[in-house]
């Protein structure tokens, strides 16, 4: 165990520059893959929520496939698999693309559940926009309000004008 630490501290100065570069590359790769995953994932999520059933199906098949394949396989297909087709990517590019399009499938699901959560909230809430006039008269506060419902559904009871005298505590 002591030997272990001895080697560790003897070699560390010599290894340090390389380790630093490696850590930098890792962070760079993470950043690239993350950006790609966010953009592509958002596109996938929107496709999955779109009205066109074709787009929806394509997006869900893509997500299902990507979620069932190991990252390593995706990377190998992108880096080695397309070489016979005449395309060669450098390792960092291939790594960013592979990690990015793989993570996009997960990100898409996160976005989708987020968007759906908001949409379902919108379903249950009704919104309106309007103006009001309040006058603190000598008798007490008087309020006149007029509002128009924005997303009224069939069968809702609407009230566009409201007059209020006094204040509710």
């Amino acid at each position: 165990m002591i030997e272990f630490f001895q080697i560790f501290f003897d070699k560390l100065p010599q290894w340090w520059p390389e380790m630093q570069t490696a850590a930098g590359r890792t962070l760079l790769l993470t950043a690239y893959a993350f950006i790609l995953a966010i953009i592509f994932g958002l596109a996938l999520a929107l496709a999955k929520l779109s009205r066109s059933s074709m787009l929806r199906r394509v997006a869900s098949v893509y997500i299902e496939i990507m979620r069932s394949i190991p990252t390593l396989v995706v990377l190998f297909i992108i880096y080695f698999g397309i070489v016979p087709l005449g395309i060669t990517l450098n390792a960092l590019t291939a790594g960013s693309i592979g990690l990015g399009i793989h993570a996009a499938a997960y990100v898409a699901e996160i976005f989708r559940s987020g968007i759906e959560a908001i949409q379902s909230q919108n379903e249950s809430f009704r919104f309106s926009a309007g103006v009001g006039l309040a006058w603190s008269s000598p008798i007490g506060p008087l309020k006149f309000s007029y509002a128009i419902p924005l997303n009224a559904k069939e069968g809702d009871r609407e009230q566009r004008f409201q007059f209020q005298a006094g204040t509710a505590f």
Partner: peptide
């Protein structure tokens, strides 16, 4: 298999399919 046969796209696609068939 890849180092032996150089059928890179075929083999890795097959690998992907196999994982898919197990995960689904």
């Amino acid at each position: 298999l890849v180092t032996r046969s150089f059928e890179t796209p075929v083999i890795y696609s097959l690998t992907a399919l196999l994982y898919l068939a197990m995960c689904l």
